[in-house]
């Protein structure tokens, strides 16, 4: 009896698992393998030499540092903003769908035209400086000075807020209404409801959003490159720039090394988040 039940569950996971192994696990392994050879084609095993070299590489360390700074500003900011807006949208009885759509707009506009838009806005002779010049403020070189970090954070939030909001809204809708009804019967206040039901039950979603934010903080760089180029102002030279440039230089082994360190770091964070989730839900 027991073995039969086990089999039927396996049928559900098997199709996905097979494809997952072929298209994700296997590339993952191949990619990691490159971290231990000296060149992408006909490479020879060099042990941990690539890791040693990487930690001596000035560009890598700079990229790592800048990425950490960027993430520690943008991810919490984005988290709070999207949670707040999702809660507001969820409360709005009318036009809920319209608002959801509005915040998804940044995801839908093709990157080519968003890039064009931001460039025109922040260029030295751009629209923003035009507005400033009317008010009487001297032109600011937004993209070539340390102001560029703010521009990048702004673009990141603009682009990803909708993404997170959709995930959070889905999470909010997943909370069974009975929980609130039961709490209401018990005489719980609004804040208590929020803390003990909304937040607790939203935790799996929040963890999902946090992990996706980390991933998306890498993805948004497609736009950043196109706006500021491969070698931007040094305050926004990120790991992603480093990796992209490594790819351009055919230095795949260094790219793979940087990736495996990155994955290890994010794995630790993810592990921590899952641990927290389990602790709270218990």
């Amino acid at each position: 009896m027991k073995s039969k039940r086990f089999d039927s569950t396996l049928l559900f996971i098997l199709p996905g698992l097979v494809g997952f192994v072929i298209f994700f696990i296997w590339p993952f392994i191949i990619s990691l393998g490159y971290a231990f050879v000296d060149q992408p084609v006909n490479g020879v095993f060099v042990g941990v030499q690539n890791f040693v070299d990487l930690f001596r590489n000035k560009a890598y360390l700079k990229g790592l540092m800048n990425t950490l700074i960027f993430m520690s500003i943008s991810i919490p900011l984005n988290m709070f903003l999207s949670l707040g807006i999702a809660l507001l949208v969820n409360k709005a009885n009318k036009h809920k769908e319209a608002f959801t759509l509005l915040f998804l707009i940044p995801l839908v506009i093709p990157s080519g035209s968003t890039v064009f838009f931001w460039k025109m806005l922040f260029a030295y002779d751009g629209y923003l400086n035009y507005i400033l010049s009317i008010v009487g403020i001297t032109k600011i070189n937004w993209l070539e000075t340390s102001y560029v970090l703010f521009v990048v954070v702004l673009i990141f939030i603009w682009k990803n807020l909708g993404y997170n909001m959709v995930l959070i809204l889905a999470g909010l809708n997943n909370i069974p209404k009975e929980y609130y009804e039961a709490a209401y019967v018990d005489g719980a206040g609004r804040f208590q409801c929020f803390r003990h039901i909304t937040l607790i039950n939203l935790l799996p979603t929040i963890i999902l959003v946090l992990i996706m934010s980390i991933i998306n903080s890498f993805k948004v760089f497609k736009e950043i490159y196109l706006i500021t180029g491969n070698y931007p102002h040094s305050s926004i030279y990120m790991l992603q720039h480093f990796m992209n440039n490594m790819f351009h230089s055919l230095n795949y082994q260094r790219l793979a090394t940087a990736t495996s360190i990155l994955v290890l770091m994010i794995a630790v964070i993810t592990q921590f988040l899952f641990k927290m989730e389990r602790k709270v839900s218990r």
């Binding site: 191949i30 990619s31 393998g33 231990f36 050879v37 490479g43």
Partner: peptide, 20 residues
Amino acid sequence: LLSVTMGLTFIGCNGQTSRN
């Protein structure tokens, strides 16, 4: 996880050398 990662890398390297 660690042992899996190590194992995977080992396989990865094998795949690497066998191709050349």
